[in-house]
Amino acid sequence: MPNLKDLKIRIDSVKSTQKITSAMKMVAAAKLRRAQESVEAARPYAVRMERMLGSLAQSVGGTEGAPKLLAGTGAEETHLLVAFTADRGLCGGFNSSIVRQVRTMIMNLKATGKTAKVFCVGRKGHDVLKREFSAEIIDNVAGLGRRGIEYHEAAGVANTITELFEAGEFDVCTIVFNRFQSAMTQIVTPQQLIPFESANSGAEEEETPADDGPKAVYIFEPEEDEILADLLPRNLAVQIFQALLESSASEHGARMTAMDNATRNAGEMIDGLTLTYNRTRQAFITKELIEIISGAEAL
């Protein structure tokens, strides 16, 4: 028979856990709303940037001397995977789904005899991946977006990546992040950044204005290569900025859902424990009554 006092302690502890999880849920919901607003506000820019670069790439593509960021190094031996995870846990499958995706990608690359390198954004991904792939991890940054994500933070990450690329550290760069769908669903998305790949397949629910019809021949001012030299690093930063925003919105969404579940589970647990507690209490009372009555009868 469980001890009444122990049960009481247990119930109290679950109750305080429930308080914490429900508070975390509230906080995540508030943060989610802000993050969602900023990710939705930023989407048009990233989409249009990509469209512009797409039209540029079409007219420059194939010509010799196209910038490396656009055309790649010609090889695809070394892949850089940029994993976007959160700095904190307690957000359901958010971090582990990224880690799983990165692990699969590394395995696939290794299986085909290519080299994989990993750049971790966010502490959690680094913590997990370093156990298995400490040799592959070349760098990590954490603590981004404590007070909302700033563009210059993304630019910093982009600079690091560009420098690595120029130093010939890798040939292909892919970012892996959670694309924000809703508070319930986050989609793990690998997106290739270098060389530039026009993501026509990226199913965006963006109202694309009517197509320009046949592919127009553009006038460039200044020359294509000058614009490209400006646009490519910028695009990199913008896509990373976008990934950071998506990832942060997803994180809060995932945390909110996870904490909602936890609160509900705690509630169920409390109900169960309270039931046991009451039954036990009743059993004690009955036992005591029986003792008293049988004691009285014996007299």
């Binding site: 512009m52 039209s55 021949v217 553009y218 006038i219 001012e221 200044p222």
Partner: peptide, 19 residues
């Protein structure tokens, strides 16, 4: 304000990409 001078855009402008 284009990098090489102001660009006035009216309907039917030729396709252009500029800094």
């Amino acid at each position: 304000p284009g990098a090489e001078g102001d660009i006035g855009v009216l309907p039917g402008h030729s396709p252009l990409i500029a800094t």
